[in-house]
């Protein structure tokens, strides 16, 4: 026997629908978690990443001993966490003698591992270690710029992969309209060698240049680190093709039209007010005028009485 199960309340239904596949998706959420052992450096790295993505991230603090992202069977709990927290970007930190300060960036498609890349963290400098004018501090939820420097990003396959991964992890929400006042930070990724990428996070300072286009100035705000690429796992070609599918057009919203002159207009239903049936109360202000007048007359007469004396 099969029973049909639907959410009991409207609120629950809305919550379920938030997790449902959509034609136009909302921004991806990031899940940050770690293995059985993490170093102080890695703890700080994960905390900083969470800080950068605070509005679109979930951070788990418990140890996870059965996560091995690259091994078959080791990704099951990772996929489960992705489903549970509705996150499709994964950052997994682990520390061992063989692979110190190991960071695994991953993405999921339909809550199954899409691709993975493993990097080692070196030369790490945390957000706290930077001193700068706090007025420049990037604001939460602003869309960052990206700068990728170096020929290795084109020639080396693994770095190409890392570039896409970093872009997807830190780009923030996909927007059509960008508020120019929100421009204020940049991720600078430089390929130093075929295996190493230096990543920096800077604030943008918009200076007057005499034209409408401001002059850019960079102030390092941290974190910064070198990422040494180790292993990676690319998606299968068929899966990539499916994941890259784009919708033909967004679904039309009912009763809402867009007009050049009026802008966005909607048609809504307002029930008849039935003015004739309105219940009248004794508390209507208009009816109190008589009393007010009477009071006024009384005062007037009093004054008149006083005056002759």
């Amino acid at each position: 026997m099969v029973a049909i199960r639907v959410p009991r309340s409207m609120r629950a239904k809305r919550e379920v629908l938030k997790h449902a596949p959509k034609l136009v998706e909302n921004g991806k959420k990031m899940l940050i978690l770690h293995g059985t052992k993490t170093s102080a450096v890695l703890n700080s790295v994960l905390a900083d990443i969470f800080h950068l993505k605070r509005d679109h991230a979930v951070k788990y603090t418990k140890k996870n001993d059965n996560i091995r992202p690259f091994e078959s069977g080791g990704e099951t709990s990772l996929e489960f966490f992705s489903l549970k927290s509705d996150c499709s970007l994964l950052v997994y930190g682990s520390h061992s003698k063989k692979k110190p300060n190991n960071l695994v960036f991953g993405r999921t498609y339909d809550h199954h591992i899409y691709d993975l890349i493993e990097v080692g963290v070196e030369n790490y400098k945390s957000i706290e270690s930077y001193a700068y004018d706090k007025k420049l501090a990037p604001k939460l939820g602003t869309k960052p710029f990206f700068a990728f420097i170096g020929e290795h990003f084109e020639s080396v396959e693994k770095l190409k992969h890392l570039k896409e991964m970093l872009l997807d992890h830190f780009k923030g929400e996909v927007v059509e309209n960008l508020n120019l006042a929100g421009v204020g930070r940049i991720f600078v990724c430089t390929a130093i060698s075929p295996t190493t990428v230096c990543m920096m996070h800077c604030a943008l300072r918009l200076k007057r240049s005499g034209t409408s286009i401001p002059r850019m100035e960079l102030v390092e705000v941290g974190p910064s680190m070198d990422l040494v690429v180790k292993r990676n796992q690319s998606p299968a070609e068929s899966l990539r093709k499916e994941a890259m599918n784009t919708p033909g057009h967004a679904k039309k919203v009912k009763n809402v039209t867009k007009d050049v002159l009026d802008g966005k207009t909607g048609r809504i239903y307002i029930p008849d007010q039935e003015v004739a049936k309105l219940a009248l109360t004794n508390d209507i202000k208009g009816l109190k005028r008589e009393r007010r007048d009477a009071k006024k007359n009384k005062e007037h007469s009093k004054k008149q009485k006083v005056n002759p004396e």
């Binding site: 449902a20 596949p21 959509k22 034609l23 998706e25 991806k28 499709s88 993405r107 999921t108 498609y109 339909d110 809550h111 899409y114 896409e164 872009l167 997807d168 780009k171 998606p235 990539r240 499916e242 994941a243 890259m244 599918n245 919708p247």
Partner: peptide
């Protein structure tokens, strides 16, 4: 970039 979930 790839989608998060399949198309409806």
């Amino acid at each position: 970039l790839p989608r998060e979930k399949h198309l409806p």
